[in-house]
Design a protein around this nucleic acid. Structure first.
Length: 545
RNA sequence: GCGCCAAUAGCUCAAUUGGAUAGAGCAUUUGACUACGGAUCAAAAGGUUGGGGGUUCAAAUCCUCUUUGGCGCGCCA
């Protein structure tokens, strides 16, 4: 859409720039903060000062003198302080609304990701306890990112890596067993690295209800592992689905052992001389590829470190044909990134095949005081609690509206009290408001008809709203390529703001059927975009609040 | 001690990745139609972008020093 508006202009200016003597400079447009400066502007003159050794203002005038505004549907071209400002003909801009009405939810679909096949892995919490508040942030971010990438034309799979092997699952089985003994009034002892949360007691109870004292007689280890993981995984899936988060793949760590991927990966690394033996352990030469030091793969006791299945896992992902991998980690794992990237370099030949998006920790406050969370100690604010208290829509909006680098403080008491102030309702209300207008129109016997052109609309009053609509594809491009879903929440809020503003200034449904219908055409386009933007962050659009 | 990340209005956050007068929401103050939904609209006030130095036409953004906070620094996962 923006191409339609600015594409030819961009080409033309780039030609002019070339003629002026600067090769290969790309012209970029931006929307001025101050609306009186026009609809779009470019800072190209500034960027040419070095090459052309001239005052930016002079360069700008030079460029403008070679532009014919009629050729580009422009009403005005202006040079201000070196910036070149463009104002489009309102009639032309408004005609683009009908394009949105035609494209419907496909409006804003891009091709920037064409030919790419991404794998986005996120949450991947161990099935050793319930999901907590931090996982919620990763879930909201990852899921929104996937939706936005798809909108931008990428082929994308979302994936959850289930750590269903290793030490922590052993500890899970033992923890359940201790709780199980407790239920029979027997002596029990939870070690430090066992899991102390209430969910473990839940599982123990379920086992007792079903099997009674069977496991006091026979070996519990394998059964408890399976029962524990199955139970927790089921809860976790339910929580995520209630949070409107879905995964294309649930990838089990154990499967990497079963299909020999782990063996093959070790073999591969050995064959390519990426490993060496020292002190009875097998080491990986990660320091050769940017890591601080080499890392152990196989410990003295012959067991694998966590890194081994994880390399095998990424190896597996690359072998599945993805052109790029994205992992979403908490910053508490940021030290792990260099060794993982080193491993990617070894198995994929290029560490840039993987990008890790790091999300800052979420700190939880209750009445201003920090609540320390720890899965082992069992103290955690669960995602489930928050979904129940605040609602999935409000929660997702809140998570996504902040950049990942923000160290979030969540004050629970404040969050619950103020959940009605959540901006998500403002956006949803805008959508509902439009639905309501259509209902009113219908009640009044007005027949909505899709038009080809506006004849009565007051462009001066609707121009801001329309310009905001035209911005949408650009938002998608930015949110997808820079992986910033919060741009979408911002945009949705702004669009809602313009809608509310327009609504209070202009009466939509009047006695004139022609006028009313034209305004409804405009609002229909707004509604389409609002709904689509909300869907990208996993929030439902509502027809009634 | 070393490394990574951050610090912007009273609070929670933005700032088109180096662009024009740093913007929103909440809170505060003021105003709005006997209207199609007031979960709204219009406006005021609020800032030495933690601090110092530098780079350039231009710095919240880049470099450097410094202060404060978060997170790492396992043959745990």
């Amino acid at each position: 859409m923006l191409d339609l508006l600015l594409g030819n202009l961009k080409v033309k200016i780039e030609d002019i720039v070339k003629d002026l003597g600067a090769e290969g400079v790309e012209v970029e447009f931006e929307i001025p903060k101050d609306k009186s400066m026009g609809d779009y502007s470019t800072n190209i003159a500034f960027r040419l000062t070095k090459v052309l050794r001239k005052n930016p203002n002079l360069i700008a005038f030079d460029i403008v003198s070679k532009l014919n505004k009629e050729d580009y549907k422009l009403e005005k071209i202006e040079v201000v302080n070196g910036f070149i400002n463009f104002t489009f003909l309102s009639s032309y801009i408004h005609n683009l609304v009908f394009k949105i009405l035609k494209e419907k939810e496909n409006y804003g679909n891009l091709k920037v990701g064409e030919g790419e096949y991404y794998n986005v892995e996120f949450v991947s919490a161990n099935p050793t306890g319930y999901l907590h508040i931090g996982h919620g942030r990763g879930a909201a971010y990852g899921d929104s990112l996937v939706r936005i990438l798809k909108k931008a034309g990428y082929k994308v799979d979302s994936e959850y890596y289930i750590n269903d092997g290793g030490n922590q699952i052993d500890n899970l089985a033992h923890s359940i067993y201790e709780r199980y003994k407790e239920l029979f009034g027997l002596e029990f002892a939870l070690k430090d690295d066992y899991y102390h949360g209430p969910e473990i007691i839940e599982i123990a109870k379920k086992i007792k209800d079903k099997y009674e004292d069977k496991y006091l007689q026979s070996d519990y280890y394998f059964d408890f592992k399976r029962i524990g993981v199955d139970y927790l995984l089921a809860v976790l899936k339910k929580d995520l689905s209630d949070f409107n988060v879905t995964f294309d793949h649930w990838f089990s760590e154990t499967s990497l052992y079963e299909n020999k991927d782990v063996e093959k990966t070790i073999e591969y690394l050995n064959n390519h001389k990426f490993t060496y033996l020292e002190d009875g352990a097998l080491w990986l030469k990660t320091s050769k590829y940017g890591d601080d030091k080499d890392r152990v793969l196989i410990k003295q006791d012959g067991s694998y470190t966590y890194l081994v299945p994880d390399i095998a896992y990424h190896h597996n992902k690359l072998n599945r044909g993805y052109t790029h991998l994205i992992d979403v980690f908490g910053t508490d794992h940021h030290g792990y990134v260099p060794r993982l990237k080193a491993a990617i370099e070894m198995i994929g030949g290029d560490s840039s095949l993987l990008d890790v998006e790091l999300l800052q920790m979420v700190r939880v406050l209750e009445d201003g005081k920090e609540v320390k969370m720890s899965k082992r100690s069992g103290k955690a604010i669960t995602l489930r609690d928050l979904i129940d208290d605040v609602g999935a829509d409000a929660l997702r909006y809140m998570y996504v509206s902040k950049a990942l680098s923000t160290q979030m403080d969540l004050d629970l008491s404040l969050l619950k009290k103020n959940s009605n102030d959540n901006p998500v309702y403002y956006v949803q209300y805008a959508h509902a408001r439009i639905s309501s207008l259509f209902k009113t129109a219908l009640d009044k016997g007005l027949k909505y008809k899709e038009l080809q052109e506006f004849k009565t609309l007051d462009f001066a009053k609707s121009k801001d709203l329309v310009l905001k609509l035209l911005e949408y594809p650009e938002i998608i491009e930015e949110a997808s390529t820079k992986r910033l879903p919060h741009r979408v929440t911002q945009y949705a809020y702004e669009l809602a703001n313009y809608l509310h503003s327009y609504y209070s200034e202009v009466k939509i449904i009047t006695d004139s059927e022609v006028e009313s219908n034209e305004r409804l055409n405009l609002l229909k386009a707004v509604q389409i975009v609002l709904k689509d933007a909300l869907s990208l962050i996993g929030v439902k659009a509502k027809d009634k609040m």
